[in-house]
């Protein structure tokens, strides 16, 4: 790829707002400006793709199941609270 005339200040501006770009929280004009820069700048592409993947990994991180012990404790607590009728006192 031939070196493009490169405006490092746009890299900096994009870097500051990359999450908003990923989350589609920018105005259409802002998005267009950054998307145009992204197409031309490999460094910013790497930045954007690694950040996007970071978000995906967070979103897809697995859930741990509630232990039987906790489920039973909660069930007993709910029963105790609602049997008392009113606001409980902490045990």
């Amino acid at each position: 790829m031939p070196p493009e005339p490169h405006d490092h200040e746009v890299c900096r501006a994009l870097f500051a707002r990359l999450s908003e770009l990923i989350d589609r929280e920018l105005t259409p004009a802002q998005s267009r400006r950054f998307e145009r820069h992204l197409r031309a700048c490999r460094h910013c592409q790497v930045c954007a793709e690694t950040l996007r993947r970071t978000v995906e990994l967070c979103r897809r991180a697995g859930e741990s199941p509630v232990s039987g012990g906790l489920a039973r404790r909660l069930q007993a607590m709910a029963r105790r609270l609602t049997a008392a009728g009113g606001p409980p006192t902490a045990d």
Binding site: H8, C11, R42, H43, Q45, V46, C47, E49, T50, R52, R53, E56, L57, R60, A61, G62
Partner: peptide
């Protein structure tokens, strides 16, 4: 910026299922 990689690393490029392990 010259010290930055020019290519998207595999962990950000491969399908998510191949990257997300326990």
């Amino acid at each position: 910026p010259a010290a930055m990689p020019e290519d998207v690393p595999s962990w950000a490029r491969l399908p998510l299922e191949r990257v997300l392990s326990a």
